[in-house]
Design a protein around this nucleic acid. Structure first.
Ligand SMILES: NC(=O)c1ccc[n+]([C@@H]2O[C@H](COP(=O)([O-])OP(=O)(O)OC[C@H]3O[C@@H](n4cnc5c(N)ncnc54)[C@H](O)[C@@H]3O)[C@@H](O)[C@H]2O)c1
Ligand SMILES: NC(=O)c1ccc[n+]([C@@H]2O[C@H](COP(=O)([O-])OP(=O)(O)OC[C@H]3O[C@@H](n4cnc5c(N)ncnc54)[C@H](O)[C@@H]3O)[C@@H](O)[C@H]2O)c1
Lengths: 219, 219
DNA sequence: CGAACAATGTGCACAGATTCACAAGCTGAC
DNA sequence: GTCAGCTTGTGAATCTGTGCACATTGTTCG
């Protein structure tokens, strides 16, 4: 399930805050979902909650980590050292969460050998060596859209089996390769869609939002 | 539906490439989804496809734009001018797609008045003025996790009704506010989950991927 | 020890999304 | 003008995911 990472993050927070046990209801509240859903999800792990008490936070963290394959690091290679690639490479949050940056490559010779976030940008040609040396299986594409397919092909050829794509294009990859796309413009368009409906819902006055009668989350 | 933006992007590409008509099957192929799904989605727009021919690309683009509320610009305000905030502000792709950056604010006085991507960083206090002056209804949160809830509260108070959140925390907002979260670590964890399953699927040898026997997309 | 209590795990019903299959409709060629 | 060939639009079957409700089980306190 795609909700496990969310639980994991919340549980890690709670553990850090010294919480030892949590009920499905408590976790559901924090995650903004239904309590029954939480129990179903956790029971899928063959999980061990204690009736009358709840779940032991530490053990749950361990279980989810194990299920997600986070019991060891997954080095990541970034293709494209532009605006976004640099922000990603310079961001410490990935290493903390088990995704160290094994390398970042760029086709532009002016960018090669510059430093971003502690890593030196390497030429695109060295991608296979980086992948092989660090046993990388996850690649991140942060190139312009026109170059994204080429980047994907190179990653696959180098041996990467999972790709996270930030370029707003649909990539074509061999079967067996897992690919996920993060398109920020799409996210904004979904928001504008909601704004649109909000505006055209009778009355049409903007910014007239019923405030504070209960805090909820609109998924 | 959350697929409309994807169709829109593909159709815009096709239009730019000079394609005048497209069949549901063609579009489905490009979007990596089922053809019947495409037809259902488009028929929801009360759309006009021509039997025997397909859909007129330009008109479809117009229809989807209209449905998504993209017939006019939606100015966006960014809270937090760090790594990510700067990358977002400096990225031209948003303006091109109808989401100009109305302003970017930061709590750090050292960052205020610096230039990022053509915009000058403004102090956090000026958020209400920016929102009011440009009639902003979409806010983007690019602050550290600990400050994200505060940023959300300020955005809501200033009159923003939709929020895109990059901080890895679950935000609590009044009902009526639309919120979407983009958590890159979650995306990576989902990839590692697939890697995990790949590795533990009998055999366990990494990087042994059946190459090129048909190019598909693993959603 | 036993009873009240608390919270899990799951059967079941329901709602929404997905896919299939096919009738209806348009186009173009002969 | 008619017919063959495509392609849409949609009814129906199916699948997936969600949420309720409750029996079950462990805990705590008298
Ligand atoms: N910057 C953002 O905030 C943002 C937001 C949403 C989407 N995106 C998308 O992310 C991608 C990168 O954006 P950006 O702002 O960093 O662009 P950018 O132009 O700043 O950086 C692109 C980098 O990729 C390099 N490059 C070009 N072709 C390459 C190739 N074949 N192999 C390797 N490297 C290559 C370029 O030299 C450049 O350094 C784009 O597709 C963009 O649409 C960016
Ligand atoms: N950089 C990335 O690639 C990346 C990737 C994934 C997630 N994120 C998330 O995005 C967020 C920002 O990341 P970053 O790398 O840009 O961090 P950063 O530390 O570089 O920047 C954060 C900025 O927010 C400002 N800030 C702090 N408190 C504020 C407040 N209350 N109001 C307004 N501004 C405030 C800080 O002054 C700073 O300039 C973080 O939550 C991070 O987890 C970043």
């Amino acid at each position: 399930m795609a909700r496990l990472p969310v639980y994991l993050q919340i549980l890690a927070d709670q553990a850090a805050a010294g919480v030892a046990n949590i009920s499905s209801e408590g976790l559901a509240e924090l995650a903004g979902v239904n309590a029954a859903k939480v129990r179903k999800d956790l029971s899928y792990l063959g999980s061990y909650g204690t009736r009358g008490v709840g779940y032991e936070v530490d053990y749950l963290v361990y279980q989810i980590r194990r299920e997600l394959g986070l019991d060891h690091d997954w080095p990541v290679v970034i293709v494209g050292a532009g605006n976004l690639g640099q922000a990603l490479a310079g961001y410490g949050g990935f290493t903390d969460r088990g995704f160290p940056v094994a390398g970042i490559v760029d086709i532009d010779h002016d960018k090669v050998d510059t430093l971003v976030g502690g890593a030196r940008v390497r030429p695109l040609d060295e991608l296979p060596q980086i992948v092989a040396a660090k046993n990388v299986s996850i690649g991140v594409i942060a190139t312009p859209p026109a170059a994204a397919q080429d980047a994907a092909d190179r990653l696959v050829k180098a041996g990467v089996t999972s790709i996270l794509n930030f370029a707003p294009v649909v990539l074509s990859v061999p079967v067996g390769i897992t690919i996920r796309k993060v398109d920020l413009a799409v996210e904004l368009q979904i928001l504008s869609y909601h704004e649109q409906r909000r505006a055209s819902a009778q009355g049409g006055q903007l910014h007239a939002v019923p405030n504070e009668p209960g805090r909820g989350v609109t998924a």
